[in-house]
Structures are given as structure tokens and as C-alpha cells.
Design a protein around this nucleic acid. Structure first.
Lengths: 213, 213, 213, 213
DNA sequence: AATGAATGAGAATTCATTCAT
DNA sequence: GATGAATGAATTCTCATTCAT
């Protein structure tokens, strides 16, 4: 129910309609996440940072997780919306894939906070998988599986001897593990180099093996 | 200093020497981890489960995380010790790799608790990377990187156009992502099928591409 | 001042004049009382149920108790008004008493909410005894004491060796204790059977004991 | 489980075994109940009065009600134990009844706190009826019903044309209503006068009606 | 007449931690 | 080696209440 107002996330006007306190609270959490682990952030921290009373937070979010998911959702929505647009003009499944990989790594690189949240925090919570945020992750996953891999299988660009689902998992696993170290140790990410590496490996894996067949 | 007593984890004598209270505490944590998130387990929970007073825990552990790492360490030590033995008799880097993959997936499958801890919990804590448990993970990683991948590069079984480090990340990423869903949703793991899939994909990726060169 | 508008509770016109919000608030409390203890009902609950903002409640009531008494008052007014009418046509003090007992038990049986409020809730609050609602209880008590018991004493139907006040307390105590269990445990009430029992006992007690004198 | 230590309530030694903090907490509640409504007593109040930290209260009682019931239980245990002894030497059901009535009224008169708790507070809480305290009330009720009323029916002292259960309700209702006003308005109770009145009425009601039959 | 945003103060609750025995 | 009583400080949570619109 909290989500209706932002049906279109980039419509700035809609956002403006959200009560200022609510926005301040979400901004406060974002800003805090840059400094400390989510688990150690208290209502008090948020209230102080947002310059709002603790009580107000309860008006809008019934528990910290809910709030976390909402914040994550916002980041993800921007990412997914953007991804959809970006993929529009591209021909060829492998080209699309390259773009998706680049965008994903770029997203992780430029949103350290979300990266840590996604890779390390939310997964631990059962209810995350019922959140709106997770829906967006599923949408992203759908794009990769259906619009890229399965498309590629149909048009002969991608091997079809392994299920699309498994191929998708490989792609995710590969990207995540390339990105993870820098999330863990706060290192800089070289988006282009990582993309190149991921593609070298993955394209090789995913493409049809003409000669070997 | 906490670690000395279990240099060889299966040496019953050493364990027997540990004070009963200490053992009870560790067992209690293990048993609790099967039921709930680590982050929500309190000293009180542990003490109650261990049938020991809270005060006693302070004799042995100053911090829940320390305790968690110790428990994890135990599991890992058994796993790594075993892996080393298992790899002994095997010829060929790809064969060794297959074995390592199988063992790893099997470990995750038969230790749901450790799987969840490793994949979801400990990574979030900085100090984990200074723990004895992490040393074991590094040892495991070393075996894969040096004894399998780099060996394979030397003997021509594994491609050398991508750094061993990246190849290792792919292997990890791939395994983890195949295992993750069942860790998250408590599903059963089909060790053999997953191993087969992981190998199909990874061997293809890692092997020298004779024809394509 | 809150009470004037409903001097005659069933005068629809008067009620119609009350602002819709006020009515909604009272209805909301009634409905909530069917579900939970009064003491645990908050402004927020009421506002939500009434589909009204919390702020509005302050326009009308400064205190949950005030609101509770007002609701109770409404129920009681209907009951007492009705009782007065019902007793009109009846001859004989014991017959009147039987009617009063039946009406009272019937009221409790068909107004579980009021029953619980009267028997368990309001008594605990000092200010209740200054409320309009309590005035109605006193009026009811007056009818029993003066119009029935004292009348009966005068016309020789009811013993006069015990003060009317005590006899009244017996009647109340008896009725209440017969009704209480079902209020506490939400059981159904058999109005006729309970009335019969109450009368058997009470008539015996209250009537003149010709032979024993 | 809290109750075991006081299996024999009057064994002072057993009580001494309870941790001092626990005793202080219970004493604090007793003392507070003399001053204010139970519902308005907070953990803070109790902690302050007991000169103990709030945290400790949680060690022993998980919620205020639990604590209330425990306190009530203590009072009741003394009362019931005493009553059993008192009834021992008495011949005749009506004589026993007189004694029970006197003891009960005397208990209410000398324990204003318990009186208010019993008549006004605890009944409102469902869980009260699962408490140890309520068991004692049931024991008291059993004594009246079985050892007095049913005994009296057998030996011809008490009428048997109305069920023992109803007769018991009358006795309770009568006593309570005689006592209630003084509980509500903090008036003094004249134990002897009230007992005399209750007996006049009740004996009359309960006794066999020789002549009228 | 009604809304809804926001507050503030206090209450309940949790827990790691200490210490005397 | 182990117990159990007690602490204290923080944290979560609840609500009545106000105010500008």
C-alpha cells in the first residue's frame, strides 16, 4: 500500500506528494547506510539524522526492515527503469547481455550502499522475498532470462543445451563474485575491466560451440 | 589461544579436555542456528539452550561473533581436512576440479547451517576476515587457485588467457549461485545434478579452446 | 453539554443533527468493544475504525472514558426508557419484580458489550460515578428500590424486616452473579431459565414469611 | 513454575529461599496497589518502589499481570488455608456457612487491596482464569459448593430444589454486592453487621421451608 | 467540519555485562 | 569451573495531543 504513490518512480511530481517527513526518513537511512551496517542502525539514529521524532517513523514504517526495503526499492526502480530503456536500441542477444552486465556492474560500482544491501543484507530476511524490492529483482532476472537468454537461444546466438535458468544463475554468480570483494573491502571497482572479464568468460560459456559439437 | 585445543578437530582426546561448559555452549549455538538467524540469537538463548548460566559464557567467549566463528571453524576444518585427503588420489586438474565442486556442493547440502552462515551471515562482519575460520576459507581458495587452476594452466588443461584469480571467482560464483536458492528457501539440494550442471558449464569455460584459437 | 442532544435517545431528529463524524466515532467504539477490552482501545483504533482522523476526536471528546460513558449512556437510556414503559401495565410488586428481572437479564443477554462494560469496566473508574450514564443506573436502581420493593413493603407483598437497600443489593447481586459467567466466558444466556431461577430464589427471600412469623 | 517454591505457603523457610529482588518486587506492587489503580502502575513505579532495576522485573515476571496474579495468589493462599482450618471445628452446614460468610467479608474488609483486585481488576483479563490465583478461588468455591451446600442438602439443612451451583452463585452475589460499595468508595466495612444481614437473607433462602411445602 | 502531519514524553523491553559466592 | 542475582544503558514502541490548512 505504501507503493501506490510512486507507481511511476521517475515522475518527480508524485514523489513530491509524499509527506516531507517520510522523505526525510528515507533519506536519512540512505545516508546512514553509507556509514554503518544496517543491523546497527537504530530508530534513534534515523530520527536524529532525519530531524524527525522517532514516533513519526512508526507512522510510516512498522519496522526497520520495511524501511530498508523501501529504500532499496527506490534504487532498484531507477536501475531497472533505466536498464529497460538502455536495452531498447540494441541488436543481438550477446550485445544485450554485454550491456546488461555493464549496467549491473556499473550500478554496483556507483551505489556501494545498494550493493552491500543487496549482496549482504536483505537476503538474510525471509520477508525480503515478499517485498516490492524483490519484485524488481525478479523483473530484472526476467529480463535476463526471457528477453536475453531465451531470445538468444531462439535466434541461435546462445547455446540451448543447458536450461536458461542455469545459464542465468551462472551470469549472476559470475557478476556477483567479481563485484563482491570490492563490496566487502570497500575497494574501487573498475567497471570496464570487470565487464570485459565477465564477458570474455561468459560469452565463451554461453555461445554456441560450433566446432566442438 | 581459543584455537589450539582443536588443532585436529577429530582428535577426541583434545576435545575431551575442553571444559564441558564450553562444549555445551558451542553445541547450543549450533542447535540454535538451525532455528533462527544468528543476528537474533542472544546470550540468554544460548545459555538457556546450553543449560548453563549466562555468566559462564563470559569465561570463554567475549562476543557472540567470536563464538560463531569458532563454530564455523569447526565445520570448515572437517571439510578442508577431508578435501585435502580426497584430492590426493586424483589425476588431472579437471578431474580434481570436478571433485572439489562435488565436495563443496555436498558440504553445503549436508550442512545447511554452515551454508547459511557462510553464504549469508559472516560475510557481513569485518572481523570475520581476521578469524581463524576465514583462514580456512582462504586455504580452500588456495587449493582451488594454486593446486588446481594454476596446475591446470601449466599442464595445458586450463586456459591461461584469463587470470587464475578471475577463473576462481567464476567457479565460486557459479557454485554459490546454484546453491543459494536452496539455502534461502530451505529446499533440498540434488548434489549430483548440480555438480553435473556446474561442470558442464565451468569445464567448457575453463578448458582450452583448441578449435576456436 | 455532551448529553443534551440525545435527551430522548430515540428521537431521530436530534440524532440526525449530530455531526456525522461524531456518530461515526461512537459507532466505532461500540464495534471495537465487541472485539477487545476497553482499556486497550486507543484513539488510533477508534479513528481507524471510524474512518476519521484522530484529530477530529478531540473536537468531540477529550478522553476515552468520556466517550465510553457516552456510548454506555445511549444503551442504558434505551433500556431504562423501555423498562419504565414495560412496568406501566403490571399489577403487584412481585409481578413487577419478575418483569424487571427478566428485562435486566434480557438486556444483558442481548447487549454483551454493555454487559461487559457495566459489570467489568466502568466500575473501576471513579469518574464513572459522576457520569450521565451512572445517573441512569441510579434511576434504574431507584425504580427497583422505591417503586417495587418499598411499594411491596407497603402493600404487604414484601418483607420489611430487612432494609429496602439491602434487599435491592441482594437482587442485584443475584442477577449479576447469574449473568457474570456468561459475560466472562462469552457463553450464551438462557434468559427465561435464568429469570425463573432468580425468581424462585428471590421471591422466596423477599416475600413475607407468613408461617414462620 | 514460579509457584513450586511456595508449595507450602506458610513455610517461612521456603519463602526465604526466593531471591530478595523478587520479594522486593512483589512487596513493591502490594504497596503501590494501596495507592493507585493497578492499570496505571508502570514497571518504572514498581522498580523505583522496590529499589531494583526495571530489567530485573523481567527476569521474574514477563508482564505486569503475571506479577499481579502472583501477589493476589499470596493473599488468597493465606485466606484459603486459614478458612480450611477455621471450618474444621464447626458442626452444621448453616453454621459453617455463617463462618464462611464472616471470613469472606472479614477478608475483604481487612484486605482492601485484594478486594479491589478481585472484584474489579482481574476478572477483566482472560488469562486470569488460567492463573494459579484463580485456582485458589476455585478451591474456595469448591469448599462452599461441596463441603457446605451439598453437605447441607444431604443432611437436610439446606433445600435441594435448586441446584447447588445456583445457590452458590446467590451466596457470592449477595456477599459481593454487600461489599462492593465500600470497595468502590473506600468506605469502612462493618463486618459483623454485614454478616448478620447476609445471613438473615441467605439462611432464609437456603433453608428448607418446612411449613410452606 | 475535517484532515493529516508531526510531536514529545513516557512506557515497555532487551541484553550484554559484572560480581560475589 | 560454575552459578545466579542484579545492573544499566540503550532501544523499541506507543499514544495522547497539537496545529496549520
Amino acid at each position: 500500500m505504501e507503493n501506490k504513490p510512486i507507481a511511476q518512480a521517475n515522475s518527480r511530481r508524485k514523489w513530491g506528494a509524499a509527506p516531507p517527513g517520510k522523505i526525510k526518513i528515507m533519506e536519512a537511512l540512505k545516508s546512514l547506510l553509507e556509514e554503518k551496517e544496517f543491523a546497527s542502525i537504530t530508530w534513534g539514529d534515523i530520527a536524529r539524522r532525519a530531524e524527525v521524532t522517532e514516533g513519526l517513523i512508526y507512522k510510516y514504517f512498522n519496522d526497520t526492515k520495511q524501511l530498508l526495503f523501501r529504500v532499496l526499492e527506490e534504487y532498484l526502480r531507477l536501475f531497472v527503469d533505466r536498464l529497460v530503456v538502455d536495452l531498447k536500441g540494441i541488436e543481438g542477444s550477446l550485445n544485450k547481455l554485454r550491456r546488461l552486465i555493464w549496467s549491473t556492474i556499473h550500478f554496483y560500482a556507483s551505489n556501494r550502499v545498494s550493493a552491500r544491501i543487496l549482496l549482504l543484507e536483505v537476503r538474510r530476511y525471509r520477508i525480503y522475498f515478499e517485498s516490492e524490492a524483490y519484485q524488481l529483482v525478479k523483473e530484472y532476472s526476467r529480463i535476463l532470462t526471457e528477453e536475453i537468454i531465451e531470445e538468444g537461444m531462439k535466434n541461435g546466438e546462445i547455446r540451448d543445451d543447458i536450461s536458461a535458468r542455469y545459464l542465468r544463475d551462472i551470469v549472476f554468480g559470475c557478476i556477483e563474485h567479481l563485484v563482491l570483494p570490492s563490496s566487502l573491502f570497500d575497494q574501487e571497482l573498475d567497471v570496464d575491466e570487470l565487464t570485459r572479464n565477465a564477458c570474455t568468460i561468459l560469452f565463451d560459456t554461453l555461445s554456441i560451440k560450433r566446432d566442438e559439437e
